[in-house]
Design a protein around this nucleic acid. Structure first.
Lengths: 330, 330
DNA sequence: TGCTAGCACTCTCCGGTCGAGAGTGCTAAA
DNA sequence: TTTAGCACTCTCGACCGGAGAGTGCTAGCA
């Protein structure tokens, strides 16, 4: 119980917590001296640590871990909040790209931390529909829709002039003959074609491949929450965080761990796979439809973060996004 | 010349510049006392100011303004840098959305500040192509391509079940009958239709309207440059900046000024239309094809910023994006 | 008349000092 | 097993004083 109180107090205030403040804030039936003894024992066990001889104690990574595992209680987002979020999503019939951004914004808000949401990466995207649009005589747009409802567009240079009247029938025959094809199957078909069809098939194949690999954009949101924390208020901390989010470091480090299993995963401080994350807490989850289309979402904050709130938010948002994906997939 | 030196020195170091340091850094043939007299005169004229009795002088907004107007010299991006940027753009044949992001990243890099790039907002988008894709029996995707090469997708609920075999012919007839139509013209057509066609037409009209209004996403990049400046190193400054970029405040404040004319515009400190921008310098430009499709791009930084570099970067990037738009429009 | 050297003055910045406050461990008593 | 008391430690903010930098002013010089 004392560990729980220390964690909650420290998360709330950000200042090391001492025996006296603890006994004042919580209605414990005991005196500060007792608390001191208990705290010393918790320190012995490795759950708390002492930054300076005086000045209160703070939880260790292990302390947070114990808190998350045993002391946190149920962590469901309050249903009122669930409803608010659901409402936001239902209100707008958007394109997928905007859903990602909405999800990032909502998650950041709910968790009170920086959120990261990747677009869903189809495991093996199959073609549902193809469209070719002429922009200039030798320049066109290849638009393809996959079975999981994702729309992708790429520009293509034609080897010969082609207006809309040429492209439309081609698109039509391609659409019907390639339905359900994967990137490799399209490539195979391309090697047997020539001219305009060859160019279109090549573009389609590379576009499909591009969707599978790491090219999926990752949106983040809610930097303001974390920058207001004392841990990141100096320029150096902020810079580090920005670099982390900007570069793909974060996702690259996280992905191998995520493939280990579904559900919400929590990494606290030194548990993180990458050195840059050592001073952070990370709560992530995959979302998607049983292995067919998979995305990642999560939140990042200081190790001193409200894990219960973050975990419930991430869990709920992952469920929501999975439902949306299932709906899109039809 | 002394104003120019003071501006350059202060922009470079961020510390108020005194007569002695100036005479040491630049090879002037005069003593510090002379500089002092000159500086006093410049202060009299309102170009410099005195934060404290001692501790050097800094340019006023008016001082920066004079610098931009008369002292800056030609401001072309060095052609080596131009080539690098051009290369980056040519290297990738992407979708428009990604161009926006690339432009934001490149601009931030070149200008050394936070960059903002809006997607092009078509003034009166006209339809070039329409596609309908079935996702579920009563749920579909409306994909439309406008004459300026922008692709837009929205989800639509059908009033009745509709599979791909029903939708494809409908899309085909709609595409040929609506080519070149604006939102209003589509709306007019919708009122005479019913059932599936009516639903599709309504969606198309709202989507077209959505493209015209402020819905265009604005990407920003390069926060790290500005956060490393002493002006924003504290949490409060960073927060303020984030709020500015996150909310639409920035664009809303800027848009009326932008419509006044083409070309690069510079707002220094108090010249800015919004209070939140009073401590910032803003360099913006529109881009696009002669009034038909218009976007905004620019950079934001502390008033103490390298205006020459920012201006040349913004100017070059606006030209580049305009060229790209022209190409897309065909 | 314009430039320069010198000088007294002011203000910031930085390091050291000091006391208040908070927290700890330990010991002895209930 | 819990509590009260006590001596000790460490941080934090306020205060102070000297070094450094910059200024305005005045007098001298070409």
């Amino acid at each position: 119980m004392i560990l729980q109180l220390v964690v909650r107090e420290y998360v709330a205030t950000g200042r090391p917590v001492g025996s006296k403040t603890l006994v004042e804030n919580a209605r414990l039936g005991v005196s500060s001296a007792t608390i001191r003894n208990e705290m010393a024992a918790l320190e012995e066990l490795g759950f708390l640590e002492h930054l300076h001889t005086s000045g209160g104690r703070i939880p260790t990574d292990q302390g947070y871990r114990y808190f998350v595992a045993h002391l946190m209680g149920d962590c469901e987002l309050p249903s009122s909040e669930q409803l608010t979020i659901l409402h936001q999503f239902r209100q707008v019939e958007l394109q997928l790209e905007q859903w990602i951004e909405l999800a990032a914004a909502t998650l950041a808000q709910a968790a009170g931390n920086v959120s990261l949401v990747s677009a869903p990466i189809p495991q093996s995207p199959r073609l549902r529909h193809i469209e070719l649009v002429s922009l200039q005589p030798r320049l066109g747009l290849v638009i393809l829709v996959t079975t999981d409802g994702a729309v992708h567009q790429v520009m293509a240079h034609w080897p010969e002039d082609a207006d809309q009247e040429t492209l439309s029938p081609l698109a039509h025959t391609l659409a019907s003959s390639l339905r359900g094809f994967t990137a490799d199957e399209v490539s195979a078909r391309a090697s047997g074609a020539s001219g305009l069809a060859r160019a279109a098939l090549d573009q389609i194949a590379t576009a499909l491949r591009g969707m599978m690999t790491s090219g999926a954009p990752v949106r983040h949101s809610g930097l303001e929450h974390v920058l207001s924390q004392p841990e990141f208020s100096d320029a150096a901390g902020a810079q580090e965080l920005l670099a982390l989010l900007g570069g793909g470091t974060f996702l690259r480090a996280m992905l191998p761990r995520l493939e280990e299993g579904p559900g919400v995963q929590v990494f606290i401080g030194h548990e993180n796979p990458a050195d840059e994350l050592r001073r952070l807490g990370v709560v992530v989850s995959t979302y998607g439809v049983d292995g067919e289309v998979v995305g990642v979402l999560g939140v990042v904050g200081p190790t001193r973060m409200a894990y219960d709130r973050s975990i419930s938010s991430v869990r709920y948002m992952a469920r929501l996004m999975s439902d949306l994906m299932a709906e899109l997939r039809g």
